[in-house]
């Protein structure tokens, strides 16, 4: 499956990309994160503390055990600080 992956705030800075297209066999967000972590040091660093990472699937907040079937856009970002 092909996914559009977006990174925001310090995840974007650590990985050095705001978005990328990834082809993966991962079936859940957690599997996708494990795959990304194994790629390069910068990904491993960005995903080293998952308590500081949030995920959205097709622009809806989600959980790391959520399935990726049917998903087109995955976004990773730190806890939000609006207002």
């Amino acid at each position: 499956m092909t996914l559009e992956i977006l990174y925001f705030a310090w995840l974007r800075e650590r990985i050095g990309l705001s978005r990328e297209t990834v082809t993966t066999d991962a079936t859940t967000v957690a599997e996708l994160v494990a795959e990304l972590r194994g790629r390069e040091e910068r990904y491993a660093l960005a995903f080293s503390d998952m308590s500081a990472v949030r995920v959205a699937l097709d622009q809806d907040l989600s959980e790391f055990d959520a399935p990726l079937a049917g998903v087109r856009e995955v976004a990773f970002f730190p806890p939000m600080t609006g207002g």
Binding site: A9, P79, M80, T81, G82
Partner: peptide, 23 residues
């Protein structure tokens, strides 16, 4: 709800550099 459920992230700039605001 807007503070912790809308996707905004603040970064502060000062003489010491820049830092993301922690939730």
């Amino acid at each position: 709800y807007l503070k912790s459920r809308a996707p905004f992230w603040k970064k502060e700039f000062s003489g010491d550099g820049a830092a993301w605001v922690a939730a």
